[in-house]
Design a protein around this nucleic acid. Structure first.
Length: 789
DNA sequence: GCTGGACATTTTTTT
DNA sequence: AATGTCCAGC
């Protein structure tokens, strides 16, 4: 064997040794450094590990794992390589491989885009463990955070100011509502919600108001919407604000219009990784393409079966057509699951196999089958909640940790009944989602003050707080200010500052000027004090905290939340590089709830299935596994597409569980003030029967029928509760499953034995062998079957 | 300009 | 059921 061949082979073996903790597919993803790469990573297949090690490989060894050239120094390196291969530990192998490195990549040349900030931090932490200090320089963040960083530097080139503020959905909605009102468009014609959705979708496809009106001039409805969009965009600009979609869209525009900026970014990011690619929208995938340029060093990781955000513009085609977009792309499938037990995986595969629009993938595991998936029926949600509490309590009594359990539901509204049940049983729980901290009114108000202090041009935030607490500045005054501002081409704040100089404002001028004085005073204060001091001062000087104290309900909670904002400013001060107010606001505008999820807290976790993406738990409970809820009734209207997304959601949900999974459904459920009869989700019938364990808790009613004192506080709801149970008892639910082997009787066919029972779309398909030898397939709801003993 | 009561609205959610 | 939003009347 010549030296060249031996060098290449030994080097390969060293790589395999160094990355020996990965499986073959994972390793090939790590080794593939050049050109477009699509990693189809099934749930629990070690996706994060692959991304982290792929980056580590780039930084440590460059292209060595795939390079076919033999360096001049090969002969000198060989002895050390042989030695390391035979006897070396991981560190030695690493050192030798470093000497074989081919153009190792500077960390700051790597861009790693994730779905949430939390994921970005996770990557950073894990990279830090392998790479040390160098890991800091990697560009890891969400599309939004990365784009904001770029825009802060370059957006002035396309006519915005670099110190722009970011509007969240709530701010955008306020702005839209006002525009609709100005245009005299009734809510019934175009709701703010709908308008916002239309605008958002337009932006997700990089369409400007002009683009939108060009194609849709004929339709009166649409042309009014175009006008709304145009005004909205104009006003954002006047307020020096960007909404979330602008952040992406304008980065694209920046690249289109400023080739030298694009060129600079292209050379800045030599390697691009995008996680959760199935949840990107058009505008985002276009950005990736622009940045990749002709080098095309793009690695996208994702799972088409876990695409659950199409309702907000994610296009599953991005991942389905990746190799068309990037011809010659290498595709690697990660199908070995390291998370779940066999039965859970089979159930998940069974569900997702019913989708047509997918690349196809089959997860497998070396783990044993484990427990079967428990599908349980209850009479009421109170019982369902009691069951969850019982299971958790008894598991914890025998040594389990609360944090091993999660309750995942389709809609936030389901958390209520669980919350009370858990609280009553003193089971520690944490709820994610619902009303987020930064979306609370009091927090948004204080942040609005801070925003106006930082950027007085921010008219949406200004209007939010100008009369909170009450300063006797009403709508009429504000309208006057707005029209004056338009007339003079000034901002609202400029008019307010000089109110006594305008005729129509004489009467309220002192109030307005006092307000302007407050804001200006706080700005001066902030330039001489720390961030948290500024926050505290703002809360006090504005009279906001006093106002809260005088409110009747929740005033204590709200005060506490506001105080917590001060401590979050403090934390920020201790950790951040840029401790300015604008930087703090910028940071806050891009954080979410799930970012604060910490699996170390010992509490059971309650969240929506969407929020649970990427997480895993020993035991998962899914209450409300019912038709109309999961899949949601709304999804039916969208046809197959809607249903397929619900199915992917179910798939995500099932694959969160490691060892044990409970899919729970009830006969009646109280939701949005209505009590409805419900049937088990059709997805229950899509799982292979042999890996499921169906049961209906008949007779369990007695246990919960006598509600505790806590419930009977509301005599009405207690009455309804009891009524429901009575109703359910007098009309035994025909959908309650009759297990195989049971004897049944049918009015026409006589007696027989159940051969199989498979739930189907809210009903059960029975295969029955009757005593006369006939085999029949009957639907449970139609065939009037009676159970025999 | 403020207040209280009628009224609707209620998927999923990051940024 | 619960909550926020809107509008009429003070």
């Amino acid at each position: 064997m010549n030296h060249a061949t031996e060098y290449l082979e030994t080097r390969q073996k060293l790589f395999d040794k160094y990355f020996g903790f990965l499986n073959a597919a994972q390793r090939s993803a790590v080794y593939c450094t050049e050109g477009p790469l699509l990693v189809l990573a099934g749930a629990g297949s070690g996706k994060t590990t692959v991304i982290v090690n792929r980056i580590a490989n780039l930084v440590l060894f460059g292209r060595a794992a795939s390079d076919k050239r033999v360096p001049d120094c090969a002969v000198e390196l060989l002895p050390a390589m042989r030695e390391a291969l035979a006897h070396g530990d991981s560190n030695q192998v690493r050192e030798v491989l470093r000497r074989c490195a081919v153009e190792p990549v500077f960390p700051y040349k790597i861009l790693c885009i994730t779905f949430t900030n939390k994921a970005a931090n996770e990557f950073r932490e894990r990279l830090y463990a392998t790479l040390g200090e160098g890991a800091r320089d990697i560009w890891a963040g969400t599309f939004h955070s990365v784009c904001v960083r770029l825009l802060r530097r370059y957006i002035d080139r396309i006519g915005y100011k670099n110190d722009f503020t970011i509007y969240d959905t709530d701010d955008s909605k306020r702005l839209i509502s006002r525009i609709l009102k100005d245009m005299n468009i009734a809510e019934s014609i175009l709701s703010p919600r709908h308008a916002l959705a239309l605008i958002s979708h337009a932006k997700e496809n990089d369409r400007t108001p002009e683009d939108e009106s060009r194609d849709t001039l004929r339709d009166l409805h649409r042309s009014r919407y175009c006008e709304v969009y145009a005004r909205y965009q104009k006003q954002l600009r006047a307020a020096n604000a960007l909404d979330f979609d602008d952040i992406i869209m304008l980065t694209g525009r920046l690249f289109d219009e400023q080739p030298e900026v694009l060129e600079r970014c292209r050379s800045m990011f030599e390697y691009i990784l995008v996680d959760e690619y199935q949840d990107t929208n058009r505008s985002q995938s276009r950005l990736v393409g622009l940045l990749a340029g002709s080098k095309r060093n793009v690695c996208v990781v994702g799972d088409d079966d876990q695409s659950i955000y199409s309702f907000r513009g994610a296009v599953i085609d991005n991942i389905l057509d990746f190799d068309k977009e990037y011809p010659g792309a290498k595709v690697i499938r990660l199908e070995q699951n390291y998370r779940s037990v066999g039965n859970i995986l089979k159930a998940a595969n069974g569900i997702i196999a019913n989708n047509a629009d997918r690349r196809g993938k089959n997860l497998w595991t070396e783990a044993p089958d484990g427990e079967r998936v428990h599908i349980k029926r209850f009479l009421s949600q109170a019982e369902e909640a009691a069951f969850i509490c019982d299971e958790v309590a008894s598991a914890v009594a025998s040594g389990a940790k609360y944090s091993d359990f999660a309750v995942l539901y389709r809609v936030n509204a389901l958390s209520n009944s669980l919350e009370t049940a858990l609280a009553r049983r003193r089971i520690p729980y944490k709820i994610y989602g619902g009303l987020r901290f930064y979306e609370r009114r009091e927090i948004k108000d204080v942040l609005a003050y801070l925003s106006v202090i930082a950027n007085p041009a921010d008219s949406v935030r200004l209007r939010r707080i100008i009369n909170v607490p009450r300063r006797s500045i009403g709508d009429t005054t504000i309208e006057k200010i707005v029209s004056l501002a338009e007339e003079k081409g000034a901002t609202l704040f400029e008019i307010i500052e000089n109110a006594s100089g305008y005729e129509g404002l004489q009467r309220v001028a002192p109030k307005l000027e006092r307000f302007a004085g407050l804001i200006n005073g706080l700005r001066d204060y902030s330039s001489a004090h720390t961030l948290s001091e500024t926050v505290r001062r703002t809360i006090e000087a504005s009279g906001y905290i006093e106002m809260l104290a005088e409110e009747d309900d929740n005033s204590e909670d709200r005060e506490q939340n506001v105080m917590e904002l001060i401590s979050s400013a403090q934390t920020y001060e201790e950790t951040a590089e840029d401790r300015s107010l604008p930087a703090f606001l910028n940071e806050l505008s891009l954080v979410s709830d799930i970012d604060s999820y910490d699996s170390a807290d010992d509490a059971i976790v309650l969240m929506t299935v969407h929020a649970a993406k990427g997480l895993e738990f020993g035991t998962v409970f899914v209450p409300g596994f019912e038709e109309g809820l999961f899949p949601s009734a709304q999804s039916f209207a969208e046809g197959d597409k809607g249903l397929e997304e619900e199915r992917r959601l179910a798939y995500v949900c099932v694959t969160r569980a490691k060892k044990r999974l409970y899919l729970l459904h009830t006969g009646t459920r109280l939701l949005y003030g209505r009590t409805e009869t419900r049937q088990v989700s059709r997805f229950a019938g899509e799982m292979p029967p042999e890996c499921c364990d169906h049961s209906a808790r008949d007779g369990a009613a007695a246990r919960t029928a006598a509600p505790s004192a806590h419930v009977s506080r509301h005599s009405e709801s207690r009455q309804a509760f009891l009524d429901n149970i009575r109703r359910a008892e007098t009309k035994p639910d025909s959908a309650a499953l009759i297990p195989a082997g049971r004897r049944v009787s049918h009015p026409i066919f006589g007696q027989g034995t159940v051969l199989s029972a498979s739930p189907m779309g809210g009903d059960v398909l029975y295969e029955i062998e009757f005593d006369n030898g006939n085999k029949k397939r009957l639907m449970g709801n139609f065939a009037k079957l009676k159970k025999l003993d």
